[in-house]
Amino acid sequence: MAYLPYLLVAPSIILLLGLIAYPLVFALKNSFYFWNLQTSATPVGFVGFANYQMVLASPAFLNSLINTLVLTFSGTALEFAFGLAIALLLSTRLRGMSVARALLIMPTTIAPIVVGFLFRYMYDPQGGIITWLMASIGLDLPAQGILGSTNTALLAILIADVWQWTPFFAIILYAGLLSVPVSLLEAARLDGASAWVMFWRIKFPFVMRTALIILILRFMQLFNTFDLVLVLTRGGPGTSSRTLGYTLYQQGLIDFNIGMASATTWLVVIIVNAIVGLYIFFAFRKWEW
């Protein structure tokens, strides 16, 4: 019965291979073929690395890669920072914190596409509340509107994403703060730790145990941001707010160029895995305790 354990895990492995490996292999194969759905229902011919060359040579790809990296790194960092601040506030015994906890989870439960529409109305150059607020505190707004300017379009997407996902960080990090044993805080008090030392050397390491995982999850999600971009800017003006996710949509579902879209998919897989691999290598080295 030596193979019984393998037999028992086999269903999960097969399911996993079917759901993850098959699409990846399918995309890998297609990335070496010329295949445009507008002209053919099946791959037309083997083209080697031509699809990759075309993707890498197109300015749109480089542009959307930069946009994606900017959005992903700054979004994750901002959501973590704001989330941590809110979590610290939640852990105080200020009045109304239990109500705040209940309200906080709401943005996270809204579908991103709905968030996109909400923000589109708020960014509207005529009567959008954000436009109005910005104008009333005397900020110089672009004439084409916040979403219409190459300077502010990506920022507008970032703000909507931060609005939606900061509470998620806040709730999870709050749970992390709660996991700090009271006796540790008391020991630190007796050891003479100031409020800052207490946070930085005692609470923060505990919070980071939880945070390490959601940081990488959120990073991967943000890297593939598509819905907010579609609803808010469609990657525009020009390619100024185009992300890799939107580029993929453009290549595959508008231009129907399956070969190029597959090549882009694989480039994304490689980039994300490289970043995640590095992250895991460094972040989880001090994990054991």
Binding site: P181, S183, L184, E186, A187, A188, R189, L190, D191, G192, A193, R201, I202, P205, F206, K286, W289
Partner: peptide, 19 residues
């Protein structure tokens, strides 16, 4: 404040900083 009392305490569960 506890930190200014010049006392040290050993806790039941030791309260060592795990990290």
């Amino acid at each position: 404040d506890p930190k200014d009392r010049d006392i040290a305490m050993v806790f039941q569960n030791y309260a060592l900083y795990p990290h």
